[in-house]
């Protein structure tokens, strides 16, 4: 990624240290939006550069803060998952955790099917791990990706980005650990919440479509199956509204740490 001289916002995404190097006036709002992912420590090996100067060689060039924040999320996600390819299993998922035990549920769902809404709605009772990617290693340790959350404002073309703290979401527990995997299907005709178990062999093709860089692992399906079977197997949750999920998810992460 191109380097840009200026303020640096140091973040961590999926355990990957990344520096956001900024020229222009956007350092403060970018730091605010990414405040849920800030890290201490020295310079990162990976840098994403942002500039409002059209003549610069920055990775992201715009003088519109909303546009920058929107594309910055995508860029950081791309950099982080590429850095973790073959190291972490990474679901397209929202992650919510028991705030004390760290028992984490990965809510797997394709883009645009409610992950952010669920994170915003339930992340005030369960800790916010991510609304985009849940990454975990072979020991099921979860590496949070506490990115800003996109919120649609009426009359705006680009969603605005808000830090988890700004939305009142709970901080990540110190040792989040994968405790359950749920595949979400939003269905407006559903009476409330319907949960069913999915056999491992049926779950693998479903999850493979929502896993980044799966083929970069040495034994991708074996690792996925191990993770599923260690966490009670895949659950399919058909739901109407995010609130329908809360009692069940709270019980799921609560029960798994007892």
């Amino acid at each position: 990624m191109a380097s840009v001289a200026g303020p640096v916002v140091s973040i961590e995404a999926l355990g990957v240290p990344i520096d956001i190097a900024i020229t222009g006036e956007m350092a403060a709002p970018i730091a605010q939006a990414w405040s849920g992912a800030l890290r201490d420590g020295g310079p990162a090996e990976l840098t994403v550069s942002v500039s409002s100067d059209e003549a610069s060689s920055a990775d992201l060039i715009s003088d519109d803060l909303g546009v920058v924040l929107h594309h910055l999320s995508q860029l950081v996600t791309q950099v982080a998952i590429e850095a973790r390819a073959g190291q972490l299993m990474m679901f397209h998922a929202a992650g919510l955790a028991h705030p004390v035990s760290g028992a984490t549920v990965a809510l797997v769902a394709p883009s645009g099917t409610g992950k952010t809404t669920i994170s915003r709605s339930l992340g005030t009772a369960l800790a916010y791990i991510s609304d985009e990617t849940v990454g975990f290693d072979a020991s099921l340790s979860v590496l949070p990706y506490r990115k800003p959350l996109s919120v649609i404002q009426s009359g705006e073309a680009v969603k605005s980005q808000h830090s988890p703290g700004e939305l009142g979401l709970l901080d990540s527990p110190s040792t989040p650990t994968l405790a359950a995997v749920v595949f979400l299907e939003r269905d407006s005709t559903c009476a409330g919440l319907e949960v069913s178990d999915v056999r491992t062999v049926a779950a693998l093709p479903l999850l493979a479509e929502q896993t980044s860089y799966l083929s970069r692992h040495a034994r991708p399906l074996g690792l996925l199956a191990d993770a599923l079977e260690a966490t009670g197997g895949l659950r399919l949750a058909r739901y109407r509204e995010a609130e329908d999920l809360q009692p069940w998810l709270t019980e799921l992460v609560g029960a798994s740490c007892e």
């Binding site: 693998l204 083929s215 399906l221």
Partner: peptide, 18 residues
């Protein structure tokens, strides 16, 4: 690339296809 078998049913990965 990889295969998992449970109860007589097998899931295979060929390229990126599962």
């Amino acid at each position: 690339t990889d295969a998992v078998t449970r109860d007589g049913e097998t899931v295979v990965m060929v390229g990126d296809q599962v």
